[in-house]
């Protein structure tokens, strides 16, 4: 439970963070909330040569309404997102998801940018970003979410690239995130997010593959007037989830269907 030795540097601006990343090379890691990174380091499953601490970059901690967009700074903590009146008004599904991330300690420290950049298959925000066509803004460019999540723990980020902001569309229609897990603080065994917007449905799935999944077939079926129950049968179309200690691949696919039905029904206000 003792990490290997590493360099530590505190960045006071995004430019400085990027410079430091460049300096330390590919083995450097950005430290935000640290609630995924530090446990991996303690188990020596991750042994970064350097940590670039961005916790001092205050401008990354923000929630801004920008017309039909909601801009969430990379350093915004889950607890801030969950409590934000702006988020509750403009994208309540995000507030709901933030309230269900980890436990109190994780929610007090963990950040939007950290979850996005870590790209854990069981991360909750990536699902929302993908299904809503959010943009991931970095110090160098803007990357559409659908091009951002490449594989398990793998993103489109370059070695000196820092996530600064995630830009979601405003959506305050019917919505629900159903997160199926054993313990309240656990990662999702499977999670399903449903959001009604622009007259259609957006459906996203968590932890059913190496990256988040948008359930296009479900969305299309709903568009054609299918009932939640019928449409949800398509939630597992094309899925090939890996089994783990908590769920077999078959069970995950089954959960994707059941939870999709529930998410849509609950979003619409009936069980």
């Amino acid at each position: 439970m003792i990490p290997a030795a590493f360099e530590y540097a505190r960045a006071s601006s995004v430019e400085e963070a990027s410079k430091l990343l460049k300096k330390f090379g590919e083995d450097a890691k950005v430290l935000a909330g640290g609630h995924s990174l530090i446990p991996l380091m303690r188990l020596r499953l991750a042994q970064p040569a350097a940590l670039i601490d961005i916790n001092g970059i205050k401008e990354l901690d923000h929630i801004k309404e920008d017309g039909q967009k909601l801009r969430v700074g990379a350093l915004t903590r889950h607890v801030t997102i969950h409590n934000s009146a702006v988020v509750k008004a403009k994208l309540p599904l995000l507030a709901e998801i933030a309230s269900e991330v980890g436990d109190n300690q994780v929610r007090n420290m963990g950040t939007m940018g950290g979850v996005i950049a870590h790209a854990d298959a069981a991360g909750d925000y990536p699902t929302l970003a993908l299904m809503l066509d959010a943009d991931i803004v970095t110090n160098q460019r803007t990357i559409p979410a659908r091009d951002f999540f490449k594989d398990l723990f793998t993103t489109a980020l370059g070695p000196d690239e820092v996530v600064t902001e995630v830009v979601f569309p405003v959506a305050n229609g019917p919505h629900k995130y159903v997160k199926f897990r054993r313990r309240l603080f656990d990662w999702a065994i499977v999670g399903v997010a449903a959001q009604k917007m622009n007259g259609g449905w957006r459906i996203g799935l968590t932890n059913v593959g190496p990256t988040p999944v948008r359930a296009n077939a479900v969305e299309e079926a709903l568009q054609k007037g299918a009932k939640a129950e019928e449409a949800a049968q398509h939630a597992s179309d094309g899925l090939d989830p890996a089994g783990d200690l908590r769920a077999s691949p078959e069970y995950k696919k089954h959960l994707a269907r059941v939870l999709t039905k529930r998410a849509i029904n609950q979003a619409e206000g009936h069980q």
């Binding site: 054993r182 313990r183 603080f185 200690l245």
Partner: peptide, 16 residues
């Protein structure tokens, strides 16, 4: 051993 941490070894909490 596949359950070497409290993420994988599912000890419940008061919530459950």
């Amino acid at each position: 051993l596949k359950t070497g941490t409290l993420i994988d070894y599912s000890m419940p909490t008061a919530n459950e």
